[in-house]
Write a protein that binds this DNA or RNA. Sequence first.
DNA 1: CAAACTACCTGACTGC
DNA 2: TGCAGTCAGGTAGTTT
Length: 284
Amino acid sequence: MPELPEVETVRRGLLAHLQGRRIRSVRVLHDRAVRRHLGGADDFQRVLAGRTVADVRRRGKYLWWVLDDDDAVLAHLGMSGQFRVGSAPNPDPAGHPHLRIRFAFDDDGPGLDFLDQRTFGGMTFAPGGAELPAAIAHIARDPLDPMFEPASAIGAVRRKHTGIKRALLDQTVVSGVGNIYADEALWRARTHFERPTDRLTRAQAAAVLAAATDVMTQALAAGGTSFDALYVNVNGESGYFDRSLNVYGRADQACPRCGTPIRRSAFMNRSSYWCPRCQRPPRA
DNA sequence: CAAACTACCTGACTGC
DNA sequence: TGCAGTCAGGTAGTTT
């Protein structure tokens, strides 16, 4: 499940692979991969052919390739999207069920494939979007952005009238945090996921955001988190931060801090993992 | 206007 | 063995 550290790992791989290369052809093999591109698959293929990739940037879980003429192409990995260098894992498009988009380049070097099992990911052309594609103008800066302002994010959290985990997952408040790192950050900050944002002190909100920043920084250094083959870098390799997770996916196992069994609770049609001793629930 | 809810997807896994 | 049900979950659009 790609969150900020995984997307940043992919961004770095894409930059190394794509910078300065001219796209020769694009083949869309599944319409859903370009569902946000209004012109459809044919237009997507046509508009990208002949364009040169100058840079690869990221905000939160979105990344975009900067093209010539100030245009860009925006991508989101969704739940299971992957960019893979070369013709791996299968040179025959028809032979790989998850291949969605295939890129070839003028230099006859390795191609690039976008694969996506669950099809929540996708790409769209973003005219004039080199600096920031208009489609993601509503996405807040993420904690690894040099322009990220903690005081601003703290204020945004405390202005919400909801639980702290919903605020962490709200990409207009702070971006890049998904279910895994939200649970890890809340455990580190000893904060229950339902604690009301409008009753957090500035120091409490700051502690949660600092914990999110720390855990994502450490995960990035480890190459990201992976539980299975769904998340991999552009070379198909998994990160190893899953060995460092303290609560996520560890229901009934001992809390690394106090030994109390970790709980799993239903939350927003998914799960929250938390320590009932370190993270006391708010009064009802 | 903001918060909450739902649809969108496929494959691995569980229980009968 | 087969099959229905559950779970994984980010985002956009809809409803409250």
